[in-house]
Design a protein around this nucleic acid. Structure first.
Lengths: 221, 221
DNA sequence: TAGATTGTTAATCGATTAACAATC
DNA sequence: TAGATTGTTAATCGATTAACAATC
């Protein structure tokens, strides 16, 4: 119906709007104007209005936006109005850390299973969830309506596992492996990459650049 | 000197180039053209050439780019040609997972200390690194030339800790807390945010959108 | 009604792509 | 030298900002 193609840039900002609106709700704020929100979030009011209007007119002239309403509408847009069953594949440090992280559950992402390829892990439990072996995966995904797989395996094992996950019916992969799965996945499988080392490199770039700038300034004096 | 301001979009792609060049090196590839790399990475050859030329002419007409040379030049640009001392602040699941992750060390990010606010953690060791209390922080940062702090504390404690870290001389914060520190930090402090829940929400958005599209298609039949 | 603020169109800015002359 | 491929300028595309009429 309302099927314009929304730009990636807009999607990237939505969760941030959602977070700020959540905070405003906690603070008991009932309504907010694009201009006021603009001040808090350091984006332009114009951009806020443009972004939101991609999805519909959530505001009211002369009033602004109702915080609670807008929050719940963005939740719907982001698919946070329902539960998503999720498994974690790769029970190493990162996988276990994510399994222990209760925040996701509150947002509707329910961790229903943890898998690993290493037999040593079999039977070990994380937050009450027993680690299973991969041979149980196909049945488990079907029986538990698993939509999302969090992939926390080393790069070398990631692609083959991703293919397997797709074969057994997983719809989306949250990829923490340092490799670009999306290039090898079918069109209809969602891949969201979290490349931590790339993030750290960007930090490093900015650090180096700043130090260079600083040295230059001193040199100029 | 060569101080054009490089756009964020370019910086975001640099680590990816670096990764692909690393893989090419491992595969023993000596030279590569922008066109060939374009095919592998699914970006345009034009963009590759434009991106690289922000930093200098690393290629040669009629030949392409020397993989090893380009790899090392990008390393320099990203500040990976030297060691960065890093501490982890927040020894919860995620903090410990990051501490256990040896990959960063290989890229020059050396974890020299782990800190927490919870006295229960005191003296516990992660990968041979003892968890310390915050009162030791100021001296530690100075003595160990700490540049980067990885911040893996809950949101509520994150901002105050960030301010403290800046006060004691930390130059950059790798922020895993669900809050936008950058809005409250001095200009000269680098903040790189990793908002995992935002990433998961983007995945969720795409998942929901796809399902909607799919339903529509079925409806049309 | 008057004032405020949205929704939306138009203008600007920036980033990507295309084209091609320079040159190895 | 001829062929290949870069570096770079120009053209296009998309995203952001500004402006303002619509309307609560």
């Amino acid at each position: 119906m309302e099927e314009k193609d929304i730009s990636r840039a807009v999607i990237k900002r939505l969760p941030r709007y959602y977070r700020y609106l959540g905070e405003l709700m906690e603070d008991g704020v009932e309504r907010i104007s694009s201009n006021e929100l603009s001040g808090r979030m350091k984006v332009t009011a114009s951009q806020i209005r443009q972004d939101l209007n991609n999805f519909g007119g959530f505001g009211q002239q002369g009033y602004g936006y109702n915080v609670k309403y807008l929050h719940s509408e963005i939740a719907k847009i982001l698919g946070l109005d329902r539960t998503h069953n999720m498994i974690i594949v790769g029970a190493g440090n990162l996988g276990q850390a994510l399994a222990n992280y209760t925040q996701f559950e509150k947002q509707g992402f329910k961790i229903v299973g943890i898998f690993d390829v290493n037999p040593v892990m079999q039977g070990v439990s994380v937050r009450g969830i027993e680690i299973r072996m991969i041979d149980e995966l196909p049945e488990f995904v079907k029986d538990n309506h698993v939509e999302i797989a969090t992939l926390t395996l080393p790069k070398a094992k990631a692609l083959d596992m991703a293919k397997l996950l797709v074969d057994v019916g997983v719809k989306a992969i949250w990829n923490f492996a340092h490799t670009d799965l999306n290039l090898f996945m079918p069109e209809d499988v969602i891949v969201e990459n979290v490349h931590l080392s790339e993030s750290l490199m960007r930090l490093s770039y900015n650090l180096s650049r700043f130090e260079k700038d600083h040295k230059q300034e001193q040199g100029k004096i």
